[in-house]
C-alpha cells in the first residue's frame, strides 16, 4: 500500500482532521455525545490508519511501542490518582466536590481529569493491540 499515491495523499489530508475531531470529541463530551472512550478510539484510529498506509515501522518511529504501553498504564494511573487526591483532600474516593472550593467546579475538573485518564488508556491499548497484530505479520 505504500506506493499508492491516492491513499498516501488522502491519508495525509485526513489524519490531522481525525486527530482534531478526536480532541473535539474529548473536550466537548460534557456538552454533546462523546467522551474519553470514543475520543481514545478515534485518536487511535488515526494512528492505525497511518500505520496501515505508511507501514508499521514508520508509525513506530512516530509513536514508539514503549510509549503506547506507557500510555495504557498512565491512564489507569491518572484515574486512580484523581481518586487518591480526593482522599487526601478529605473527601471520599473519587468524590470530586473537594477538588475546588465550589463543588460544581470541582466536579467539572474531576470529570475532565478522569476522562483524560480514560482517553489515554483507551488510546494506548488500541494502538498497542494493533501493533501486536501487525508485528506478527512481519515476522512470518
Amino acid at each position: 500500500m505504500e506506493d499508492n499515491v491516492i491513499l498516501r495523499i488522502g491519508a495525509k489530508i485526513l489524519i490531522p482532521f481525525i486527530l482534531l475531531f478526536a480532541l473535539y470529541v474529548q473536550f466537548h463530551g460534557d456538552y454533546g455525545p462523546g467522551g474519553g472512550f470514543q475520543a481514545g478510539v478515534i485518536f487511535a484510529a488515526a494512528f492505525i490508519l497511518y500505520a496501515l498506509i505508511f507501514g508499521v515501522d514508520t508509525a513506530k518511529r512516530v509513536l514508539p511501542l514503549r510509549f503506547v504501553w506507557f500510555c495504557g498504564a498512565l491512564g489507569v494511573w491518572i484515574f486512580a490518582g484523581v481518586g487518591v487526591v480526593t482522599l487526601v483532600l478529605g473527601g471520599e474516593f473519587l468524590n470530586y466536590n473537594v477538588l475546588r472550593h465550589d463543588p460544581e467546579h470541582g466536579q467539572e475538573l474531576g470529570i475532565l481529569l478522569v476522562e483524560l485518564g480514560v482517553f489515554t488508556t483507551v488510546f494506548g491499548v488500541m494502538v498497542a493491540i494493533f501493533y501486536m497484530f501487525a508485528a506478527r505479520r512481519q515476522v512470518r
Binding site: D30, Y31, P33, G35, G83, L94, Q107, V114, E115
Partner: peptide
C-alpha cells in the same frame, strides 16, 4: 455536576468506580 450531558456525568462522577473498573 453542572454539565449538560447526563451520560458523561453518570459515567465519570456518579459511577466513577465502575468506569475505573472498566479502564
Amino acid at each position: 455536576i453542572g454539565i449538560p450531558n447526563v451520560v458523561t456525568s453518570v459515567l465519570a462522577s456518579y459511577r466513577g468506580y465502575d468506569t475505573m473498573g472498566e479502564t
